[in-house]
Design a protein around this nucleic acid. Structure first.
Ligand code: FES
Ligand code: FES
Lengths: 145, 145
DNA sequence: ATAAATTAGGATAAAATTGTCCTTTATTGG
DNA sequence: CCAATAAAGGACAATTTTATCCTAATTTAT
């Protein structure tokens, strides 16, 4: 609705990896797909993007899998994931579909749209994976239903 | 980025029709496509949806075209157009892609997402076509670039 | 009546996104 | 070294969204 499916999966996956890394567990693509209720092979592609962008870390081979370091749980904010997967159209795009958002030659919705986008941006830039994993840990929130 | 392409075209088209109806001019699909820089045949489909939803009015035949009545310029709010074209997933969807947004079993982003969505909703429900056409009329805003 | 203009609507086509499958590469344990 | 395990990556398939084209229906002017 706001993010692509790939991005939604990406965030859910990253949060799940965070949750498990907090317990010291490395997780496989299969487990991730299962636990966030996403197609495994597709999720694998997205995890590749996240590792290439140094958002999570992958280890090949026996006992391998995905993990995230404790510092990164705080340092990685949602906007980094969104940017890695959906690019920055969420920041540069125009709400009414003009080539780019441009205050010099704004679309009729520009001002109102900018307000909301700024809030969205602030939200994404300030929420960390750790924060999101916390609610999960205490059973307040869910990654699938 | 937030609305489908169809919805973006739909809003731009409706605003253009509003602008021209203010001058008493009925406009053709061809002119609309031209003036909002959108594919004509595709725009035609979208205009059909808008007329079926009584958002704008169409007249067939020679000197026909699209128009919108003065009262509707005030009564039609953006949320009606978005709903007609994109449905209500913008209201009911979950930011992280769970089946539906559900406060009983919320995703980790639910609270923060709801704040932003509420603002978006309020914005859409309170801005009318007339308001948007006004900025255009005085040359402050643009429907194409 | 007829011709011209204009929307309505159906059938496709093209492009983008989402999803699957299979092979390769790296790592570990025996 | 060898077998087993797991991510990386390439090729392809399905679905959805976007876009085009053609015909039908409606209205107006002559
Ligand atoms: S120009 Fe359209 S949102 Fe800024
Ligand atoms: S449950 Fe995800 S946004 Fe409400």
């Amino acid at each position: 609705m706001m993010f692509s499916k790939a991005c939604e999966y990406g965030i859910r996956a990253a949060v799940y990896v965070t949750l498990q890394s907090l317990e010291g567990r490395r997780v496989s693509v299969g487990e991730i797909g299962e636990e966030i209720d996403a197609p495994v092979a597709f999720t694998a592609k997205i995890l590749q993007q996240l590792t290439r962008n140094n958002i999570i870390h992958s280890v090949k081979g026996l006992h391998g899998g995905f993990e995230i370091e404790r510092v990164d749980m705080d340092n990685v904010k949602l906007n980094m994931i969104v940017k890695a997967i959906d690019g920055d159209k969420i920041y540069t795009g125009c709400g009414l579909g003009l080539k780019e958002c441009n205050a010099q030659k704004p679309c009729p919705l520009h001002d109102k749209f900018l307000d909301i986008r700024t809030d969205l941006r602030n939200m994404l830039e300030s929420t960390s994976l750790f924060e999101l994993a916390n609610g999960l840990e205490v059973g307040l929130t869910y990654l699938k239903r």
